[in-house]
Amino acid sequence: MKGGVFLKPAILIVGVYVFLKIVLPLFTAPLPASLIFLYLALTTTGIVIFATLSGPSTDAFFGPIVRFLTGEGQGGAAQGARIAVLLLFPVLVGWQTYTSTAPSDQPPAENRTIHPAPPGEYTGLSNPVPNTPENVMTGKGLYAAFCSPCHGGNFDGKGPASRGFNPPPANFSDPTTIAMLQESYLFWRIKKGGVGLPIEGMPWKSAMPRWEVELPDEWIWKIIMGEYDGAHQKPRTWE
């Protein structure tokens, strides 16, 4: 049963990797390497914790590793394997270091803040337009005219023009987007557009037009009402 000590952890790690890298993308979008690394690190941590819960399990887990690395009572193939591991390990570390620091034509992984903080003058604003069925309908009409080409008629970010943008237009039906925000936040984002994003949100890293040059404030507020209603979401409030 000696092999069993390492077999189960190895199967677990490989299994988790295969699930995250191959199985999950069959049903949804692929995961970024940063997330896969995070989950694998947690899995490894769990294995080490469980293996070291008692003295016998610790010895069973680390004993063979220590004996292998120290060459205790080894000979023949085992000795050769040990030397190979001791030679290959620094090479592997060196290779990893080289690949992570060598110049590349790939842009670095970015850490864009999707919801940067709004300027002070926009915080605390409340929608001055009464929430009546007429105004909501007007808002939806304005949305259809100005917003749906990108954000989609179903408010899902899949308008006919959406495929041309990176980052893609926001999906309002996702409960983790506009449902987390107050109406005043949307007012700022619609009014100032991608150009008006602060540094943390990377200005120009959004094709959102600066609608203040084309739409009066009242229309923007109506569009916000139409958006929430159409996406079946409610804005964040404190009452």
Partner: peptide
């Protein structure tokens, strides 16, 4: 919520 991803991954 927003993942660290390369351009290709994003």
């Amino acid at each position: 919520h927003s993942l660290v991803a390369s351009l290709e991954e994003a």
